[in-house]
């Protein structure tokens, strides 16, 4: 049984089919990349999976249990945590307090929640900034904070929406290392990412979306050579580079 599974997931906005009969399956311990050109429906798919949008059709199951129609906070409590592409820190709270909010989803007492939050803050490398106010963080730090808050909810699945966007190559390298560590510790992840190097380096499998539909799925190297994917998105330059890896 899949950990998280979507069948025939569809969402339209007016005449636009943002997500069109999408099937996705994530097994325990998977790290699945979700790629596609701008407007392909990746973030809409995340909003459907995390309950921020209601699908027009289709089914979403977490460990076999339907989570369609549940509110985002319930879905989080059941074990699906998401980050936002445009980071949304609680600006006037400290890094530690931000992460504490996530930890409170599993620990009702603030004492226990703060302990968990402190550990997660260390894990993502924000230890020295624990008591800094979130509004003063740099972009790479904000991305880490976004990740830390989601991790603190102790999810079964992490949905990461472009955690590398806006980072420079060195920072991306560090984020890849961090995500590898988290994955190695047993976390299942679904990763939306525009940075191809990062997706190819991290993912075991990649799903490619275009105009809301899945156009390819498979190992990163296979997908990169798939003619439909090349046509839709990657371009000649990348096809030449991919087999060399």
């Amino acid at each position: 049984m899949s950990l998280l599974e979507a069948r025939g997931l569809s969402k339209r906005f007016g005449g636009v089919r943002a997500v069109d009969h999408l099937d996705l399956a994530l097994a325990e311990g998977d790290l699945l990349g979700l790629i596609g050109p701008n407007g392909a429906g990746k973030t809409t798919a995340f909003n459907l999976l995390s309950g921020f949008l209601a699908p027009d059709a289709g089914e979403i199951r977490l460990r076999g249990r339907s989570i369609v129609g549940l509110k985002p906070h319930r879905i989080c409590q059941l074990g699906v945590a998401r980050t936002f592409q445009i980071v949304r820190p609680f600006p006037r709270m400290t890094v530690l307090q931000n992460v504490e909010v996530g930890a409170l989803a599993r620990h009702a007492g603030t004492g226990a929640a703060v302990r968990v939050a402190r550990a997660v803050v260390e894990q993502v490398g924000l230890g020295p900034k624990a008591n800094a106010v979130a509004s003063g963080l740099t972009m790479p730090e904000r991305k880490r904070l976004e990740l830390a808050r989601a991790l603190a909810t102790e999810p079964a699945v992490l949905l990461l929406d472009e955690v590398m966007a806006g980072l420079n190559p060195t920072e991306i390298e560090r984020m890849v290392v961090l995500l590898r560590e988290i994955h190695a510790a047993g976390m299942s992840m679904l990763l939306i990412e525009h940075n191809m190097r990062a997706v190819m380096a991290l993912s075991q499998r990649v799903v490619v979306l275009n105009f809301g539909s899945k156009i390819a799925e498979g190992a990163p190297a296979e997908v990169a050579r798939h003619p439909k994917v090349v046509e839709a998105y990657l371009g000649e330059e990348y096809v030449d580079a991919a087999p060399a890896r």
């Binding site: 921020f52 985002p72 906070h73 989080c76 945590a81 820190p89 989803a105």
Partner: peptide, 8 residues
């Protein structure tokens, strides 16, 4: 919305 996403 961020609070909602964190289980609030």
């Amino acid at each position: 919305s961020a609070a909602e996403a964190l289980g609030v």
